[in-house]
């Protein structure tokens, strides 16, 4: 509105070099770490790892050694191998449930924010009603009754619980964009609704969606861990980070390695996810004109 430049704007203008913003070394380290995790999870079967289920009573509760990098558990199973195989459960649960959450929640959120009116009102009320259920308790309740528990059921339950959350975030993000003049401009040029959603709104909502997706995956990994700790995740002996920590509970003093390594793996994985998500969000924040 004014022709005056505020101090902050001046400094911002100076800081902003066209497309010159850097993500930083730490960001790429985190990406590398995540990639390594994913690769290990995918290739776990072909990697020269010990069978995570093979018990070896000659080496029970051993500390880390060259032979067993992370040591062994109370049944003599290789902890390193179990951590790698255990990551599969966590990653599958995280990604799978987010696919459901975003697959349903994101399109609905965008559509509601763009269309507004009755459609938006009804949908938003429905989502808030769903949100009003304490999601974690509901999840625990459903999983306690829905036996036998498989990973797929866990994914479906968490994924459905995530839909209203995703809906809310995406709807809010879309609303901020949909009220801008370039969307009106697209309408008056004769662009169809689909075209506006895909060409004008999606590119501006996508960065927020991606960062929320990463943080969502992190939340589900934690949730799966908690469920496993309660004995509500995949049944043993299949390893998951959560049930490994759960198993270590009784022998924590005897064998701290059993708790330490899966906990550390989970912690680093979450840290990397959250950091990347946060960094991406600030990096892509250009919608508020910084000119």
């Amino acid at each position: 509105m004014s022709s005056s430049l505020e101090l902050s704007e001046l400094v911002e203008e100076a800081t902003e070099t066209p497309d010159g913003r850097r993500l930083g070394v730490l960001f790429w380290l985190c990406v590398g770490w995540l990639a390594l995790n994913l690769l290990a999870a995918v290739l776990a079967n072909v990697l020269p790892l010990e069978n995570p289920l093979t018990q070896n009573y000659n080496a029970v509760n051993a500390g880390p050694s060259l032979h067993h990098l992370f040591g062994t558990d109370d049944l003599g199973r290789d902890i390193f191998s179990r951590v790698v195989f255990g990551s599969r459960v966590s990653i599958e649960a995280g990604l799978g449930s987010m696919v459901i959450g975003f697959g349903v929640g994101a399109p609905l959120g965008m559509l509601a924010a763009y269309r507004r009116g009755r459609f938006d009102q009804i949908l938003t009320v429905v989502m808030y009603v769903v949100l009003a259920f304490p999601a974690i308790i509901a999840t625990i309740a459903i999983l306690s009754f829905w036996t036998p528990r498989t990973l797929l059921k866990i994914i479906v339950v968490i994924g459905v619980a995530a839909i209203p959350l995703v809906y809310r975030v995406i709807r809010t993000a879309t609303l901020a964009v949909a009220t801008q003049d370039f969307v009106v401009a697209a309408r008056v040029q004769g662009a169809s609704d689909t075209r506006i959603l895909v060409r004008e709104l999606l590119p501006n909502v996508a960065p927020i969606a991606v960062s929320f997706l990463l943080i969502g995956v992190a939340t589900v990994v934690t949730l799966e861990g908690s469920l496993a700790f309660l004995g509500l995740s995949v049944a043993p002996p299949t390893p998951s980070w959560g049930n490994m920590i759960n198993e270590s509970r009784t022998i924590l003093q005897l064998n701290p390695w059993l708790a330490l390594f899966p906990a550390a793996a989970m912690c680093l994985f979450l840290l990397a996810l959250n950091f990347i998500g946060d960094r991406l969000r600030t990096h892509f924040d250009v919608t508020e004109g910084k000119l």
């Binding site: 430049l5 101090l7 001046l10 400094v11 100076a14 800081t15 070099t17």
Partner: peptide, 11 residues
């Protein structure tokens, strides 16, 4: 003068 990453800016 403001210190900016791209150099001093004399407002």
């Amino acid at each position: 003068t403001f210190d900016t990453p791209t150099g001093p800016l004399t407002a």
